[in-house]
């Protein structure tokens, strides 16, 4: 597939996921960046994480957290897959899901921690993270098809 068509399709997909993320309790933009990190080389994966992080930050009052963490996370995940792990749906889904859990929980601990916040985490954040993790295999399949 032509490179520019791939880039355009990717941009459209990321925009769509940004819209879904802003309306539903899903972290699809973050997941897509992490899934891309399992497929791409280190440098493109790092920039993908940076862009997805910035897009996510646009929707939140606390700017900068996701931009920085996603950049670092995507860099290290891409390095991990380049050096140690095999690229397959199971490893990609597992690593990206765990990364989403850690990154979103970190956001919660930094910006949403209050004396009675445990119910918020259990009832709102954990289900969102779980549903997001369930979207990992289809996203992996989609991006793999796009970048084959």
């Amino acid at each position: 597939m032509n490179k520019w068509i791939k880039m355009t399709a990717l941009a459209a997909i990321l925009l769509l996921l940004a819209v879904i993320q802003s309306t539903a309790n899903l972290f699809l933009l973050l997941l897509s960046a992490l899934v891309l990190a399992t497929l791409l080389e280190t440098i493109p994966a790092t920039f993908a994480g940076c862009i997805c992080g910035i897009l996510t930050d646009i929707l939140l009052p606390e700017r900068g957290y996701y931009a920085l963490t996603m950049t670092v996370a995507c860099f290290f995940i891409a390095k991990l897959f380049a050096l140690y792990l095999r690229r397959n749906p199971v490893s990609a889904a597992t690593v990206s899901s765990v990364a989403v859990l850690l990154i979103v929980s970190g956001y919660f601990l930094l910006f949403r921690l209050t004396p009675d916040c445990s119910e918020l985490y259990v009832r709102h954040y954990l289900p969102g993270i779980g549903l997001t993790a369930a979207c990992a295999p289809p996203l992996y399949g989609l991006f793999r098809w796009l970048f084959r």
Binding site: T46, G49, A67, T71, V72, F75
Partner: peptide
């Protein structure tokens, strides 16, 4: 590349 991306992310703030 990581440095550039981190700088871009930090600048986005």
């Amino acid at each position: 590349a990581l440095g550039i991306a981190l700088t871009a992310a930090a600048l986005s703030i």
